[in-house]
Simulated scan of single mutants.
Amino acid sequence: MNNETHTQKNTALIFAGGQSPLLHLSKYLPHSQWTIAADSGLDHALSLGVTPGVVVGDSDSVSEEALAIAHSREIEFISAPTDKDFTDTELALSHAVHIGAQRIVVVSAGGGRFDHAHGLLTSLFHPEWAHIQIEAFIDTAHIFVLHGASSLQITGQKNSLVALHAMNGMAHGITTEGLRWPLRNESLAPWVSRGVSNELTGTSGEISLQSGALLVVQPEAFTQIPQES
Rank of each mutant, 00 (worst) to 15 (best):
M1W: 02
E4D: 14
T5I: 01
K9Y: 04
N10G: 00
T11W: 10
T11M: 11
T11R: 15
A12I: 00
L13A: 11
Q19M: 12
Q19L: 14
P30Q: 03
H31D: 05
H31I: 03
H31P: 01
Q33Y: 10
T35C: 07
T35R: 05
A37V: 04
A38G: 08
D39M: 13
S40K: 07
G41V: 00
D43S: 07
D43F: 06
H44Q: 10
S47L: 03
G49E: 02
G49P: 02
G49K: 00
G53L: 11
G53I: 10
G53E: 15
V54G: 07
V55A: 12
G57L: 01
G57A: 00
S59N: 02
V62M: 11
V62Q: 06
S63T: 15
A66G: 06
A66Y: 07
A68C: 06
I69K: 13
S72H: 15
R73A: 14
I75N: 11
D83F: 00
K84F: 04
T87P: 12
T89M: 07
E90M: 02
A96W: 01
V97A: 11
I99A: 06
G100E: 09
G100Y: 07
I104S: 01
V107P: 04
S108R: 04
A109R: 15
A109N: 14
G110V: 10
G111L: 09
G111I: 06
G112C: 06
H116Q: 12
A117T: 15
H118P: 01
L120Y: 05
L124S: 00
F125S: 10
F125K: 09
F125A: 11
P127R: 05
E128W: 01
E128G: 07
W129M: 12
I132Y: 02
Q133M: 06
Q133N: 10
E135Y: 00
E135H: 01
A136L: 11
F137S: 04
F137K: 02
D139V: 04
D139L: 03
D139T: 03
D139C: 06
V145N: 09
L146M: 15
H147R: 04
S150K: 08
S151L: 02
L152D: 06
Q153T: 13
Q153C: 12
Q157C: 05
Q157M: 07
K158H: 11
A163N: 09
H165T: 13
A166F: 08
M167N: 09
N168H: 03
H172S: 15
H172C: 14
T175Q: 08
G178M: 05
L179Q: 09
L179P: 09
R180I: 09
W181I: 12
L183N: 04
L183F: 10
R184D: 13
N185S: 04
S187I: 10
A189M: 15
P190I: 06
V192T: 11
S193T: 14
V196I: 15
S197H: 08
L200H: 09
G202H: 11
S204Q: 13
S204V: 04
S204A: 11
E206N: 09
S208W: 01
Q210C: 03
S211T: 15
L215H: 05
V216T: 12
E220H: 01
A221D: 03
A221R: 13
F222Y: 13
F222R: 05
P226V: 03
E228D: 14
E228S: 13
S229C: 05
